[in-house]
Amino acid sequence: MARSIAPQNLPELVKAAFDAARTNGDLTYYPTQVAILTPNSILFQLRFSPALALKPKAPKPKEPHGKPFNPFENPSPAMLIADLPPSHRLVLNKFAVVPEHFILITKEFKHQTHVLEEADIAATFACIQAYRMNGQELFAFFNSGPHSGASQPHRHLQLLPVERMKDGLEGVSRGSEWSILAERVAESEKVLPFNVFTTNMHSDMTAKERHSAYLELYRSAIKAAFPDREANSEGEAMISYNFAMTSNSMALCPRTAEGAMIKDKSGQDVGVVSLNGTVLAGTALVKNEAEWNVLREDPDQLFNVLKGIGLPR
């Protein structure tokens, strides 16, 4: 397999593309309010963006055979950041909650619900490495399956600059203590209500070894979900799951639900809080003020959501 190499100045390319696209109206950035919650002593970042409730829906199919709209098939030049030979490219996220949120997509259509290939893992790590060479960190995540928060069938992994994930935390109580959950699973293991499988990475691992490490996490998740079944190494994944990668670690969380209902003090339903792969960063997002208020007043409600999305420990 040809080695995947990201541009050495990738952080600059991403920032320049994001700033230009935002200025020109090619993407929408949704500012957020932020709070730190500690459900069951787990340090979690909660963000609230009321404007997200007004986010436009994806265009309906225009073709007679009903082919779904695919934003990654022919990305607009305004959204394109760079090619990542031989098999991937980088584009901006059109609806960003975290500034400089970008996406790694396959050039050819590949299924989001299929097991990741060696090239996917290699391209993701190449981006992480390019950021680290510039003294920065990236959080990469992947949503696969109906319970994972996935929204597009074309294979893509999402990448968030960790420093931009910390925007607004400076003046927030315990904001300086927040860090990526995937890198502190070991210390949080006893209090996490769902199963997460993790492994450490080292800098001299080969692309094949990194992919094998991912597959080992996937097999562990299959064994936890279906003790009597043999895990596949390619094709359609047998479970919904979220996968995350940082410069130091990988984490995989099997999913059984996308979210759960939260209630106010009188027991009335307030809304469903949905979580995608950013749950492995230790972040959650809500779109209405009632949910925002309930979760800040009663962080145990967030713990109940966490308890309902995966396999119990």
Score class of each variant (00 low, 15 high):
Ile239Gly: 00
Thr106Gln: 01
Asp120Ser: 11
Phe125Thr: 00
Ala186Arg: 12
Ala140Asp: 08
Ala150Thr: 08
Ala123Arg: 02
Ala221His: 02
Val191Asn: 14
Asn200Cys: 10
Lys166Phe: 00
Asp204Trp: 07
Ser212Asp: 15
Ser176Arg: 13
Ala231Lys: 03
Arg174Met: 10
Glu117Phe: 01
Gly168Arg: 09
Thr198Asn: 06
Arg155Tyr: 06
Asp167Thr: 11
Asp228Thr: 15
Asn195Thr: 13
Asn195Val: 13
Leu116Gln: 09
Ser176Tyr: 06
His114Tyr: 09
His114Asn: 15
Val115Ser: 02
His114Ile: 01
Lys110Gly: 03
Met238Thr: 07
Ser179Lys: 09
Ala122Gly: 01
Ser212Phe: 05
Gly235Glu: 02
Glu177Gly: 00
Asp228Gly: 02
Met133Cys: 04
Glu137Gln: 15
Arg164Pro: 01
Ser233Tyr: 06
Ala186His: 11
Leu192Met: 12
Val162Gln: 10
Gln158Trp: 05
His111Asp: 11
Ile128Val: 13
Ile239Arg: 00
Gly235Arg: 09
Glu117Gln: 13
Glu170Lys: 15
His202Leu: 05
Phe142Thr: 02
Ala207Ile: 01
Ile180Arg: 09
Glu189Thr: 12
Asn195Ser: 14
Arg132His: 12
Thr199Leu: 05
Arg155Phe: 10
Val162Ile: 15
Phe226Ile: 13
Ala213Val: 08
Phe125Glu: 02
Ser188Pro: 01
Glu189Pro: 01
Leu116His: 03
Glu209Trp: 01
Ser212Gly: 08
Gln158Pro: 10
Leu116Lys: 01
Ser240Asn: 05
Ala221Ile: 01
Glu187Arg: 07
Leu116Arg: 03
Leu157His: 06
Lys223Phe: 03
Glu216Ile: 05
Gly168Tyr: 11
Asp228Phe: 11
Met201Thr: 14
Ser220Ile: 04
Ala182Gln: 07
Leu138Thr: 03
Met205Ser: 08
Ala225Asn: 10
Glu189Ser: 15
Lys166Glu: 09
Leu181Trp: 05
Glu209Ala: 14
Met201His: 10
Leu217Phe: 10
Thr199Lys: 13
Ala221Met: 08
Gly171Leu: 11
Asp228Asn: 14
Lys208Gly: 13
Leu217Lys: 03
Glu209Lys: 07
Ala150Ser: 15
Ala186Tyr: 06
Gly171Phe: 09
Met133Phe: 11
Glu216Tyr: 08
Met238Glu: 14
Ala213Glu: 04
Phe141Lys: 03
His156Ala: 02
Arg155Asn: 04
Lys223Asn: 13
Asp167His: 11
Ala119Lys: 02
Phe141Val: 00
Arg229Cys: 06
Met133Lys: 15
Glu236Ile: 12
Gly145Pro: 01
